[in-house]
Design a protein around this nucleic acid. Structure first.
Lengths: 203, 203
DNA sequence: ATTTGTGAACAGTTTCACAGCG
DNA sequence: CGCTGTGAAACTGTTCACAAAT
């Protein structure tokens, strides 16, 4: 099925919200308050995605969660389907992400870390192996890694991003303060860039 | 001037890219490769924003950067205009953000940190004061803090976000894995949520 | 020849309005 | 009633096409 970009963004938010929702039913009015979107768009999204688990008293939370997970192909960790990721750049935020707990409950699993500084890959500890950056291509291929969390220095961002692209990875989470040029999707998770966006929104 | 949302997002990316661009001129074709957007949209954005610093050989980098900074009201740290932020929740990523270096070169300055665990606010060190969460409202008011980087536990996310909203803060950078309901803008910078978005994009 | 700047066509997204259901 | 589901209208954003500039 072809999912419109904005619809996908909202479904993701709804999915995450439902994960912590304790009620049995949820209405589009409830969701309106949680997302930044009107009840109309939400119902329209459901209509487009052929989600029809709603009665006049709202949507069944369990059912809705299951349907959205199915549409977005986001299976919980207990269903067996895990998407493999790696962390590239292990200083600062990259180092914090070595903690498995951060990804627990998601459908993502970090299976490798990389850093150009071999000191770091040797000293730092994680439940998965840490490699020198030069081994990236090989490990990505061997392990079938799909996504990279990029947290290197800004000065190395472009060249590292290009290396990641060449390795065959599908997309990058950008945790550097840089904008670089690659032909795979990049989603931002850098607090500083996010602040700039927020400032423009509230201007 | 009224800036369309998508246009603002692209201008921000262009602005950050130009910060590290060493060339003297840049064309819409160059920018096309860096953003995920076509040269047409970029020229359309400039047209809408009345940016006309381009000749047939491209845009003057220095001039362009200045104009965009002006439009988005993003002045570099040397111009005197600083936007004050605070970090709420000092474990994990929040703790890493205590390092001033991360924000250097941006127009944002972290002036306070908060945590519900008083142990943490006493043990951790930063160039700005760390307070118990109970002091949030007072400090935000006294310091004129505009934005909050929220990095608390998921279980406390909704209540902490509500507290931030009440304090009069303009917007939140979400570094928790939660979606919560507030009436101020929220921009995501949580790696796990970003991965979910990326997965939907590459599905 | 290459690149800007923009009207006009097109595509995507949101809102309005309201019928139908519980 | 309040809520869902969906045409139709309104709006926003993107691409096409091309004249003007260097």
């Amino acid at each position: 099925m072809n999912i419109p970009k904005r619809t996908a963004e909202r479904l993701i938010k709804i999915f995450h919200f439902l994960g912590r929702c304790e009620k049995e039913k949820v209405t589009s009015v409830d969701l309106e308050k949680v997302l930044g979107a009107s009840q109309d768009v939400i119902r329209r999204d459901f209509s487009l995605m052929k989600i029809k688990c709603g009665k006049s008293n709202g949507y069944d939370v369990i059912q809705l969660k299951k349907i959205i997970a199915d549409i977005l192909d986001l299976k919980a960790e207990d269903s067996g389907k895990e998407r493999k990721c790696c962390i590239v750049g292990l200083s600062k935020i990259g180092g914090v992400l070595l903690d498995d707990q951060i990804f627990s409950g998601s459908s993502f699993k970090v299976v490798a870390g990389f850093d150009s500084n071999v000191n770091r890959t040797e000293i730092l500890k994680a439940s998965f192996p840490l490699h020198p950056l030069s081994r990236l291509k090989q490990v990505v291929k061997d392990e079938g890694i799909e996504y990279a969390l990029l947290s290197c220095d800004s000065s190395e961002a472009q060249q590292t991003a290009s290396l990641i692209e060449e390795s065959g990875i599908k997309g990058i989470i950008n945790i550097t303060c840089s904008i670089y040029s690659v032909n795979i999707p990049v989603v931002n998770a850098c607090p500083v860039l996010a602040l700039t966006e927020l400032a423009a929104l509230t201007a």
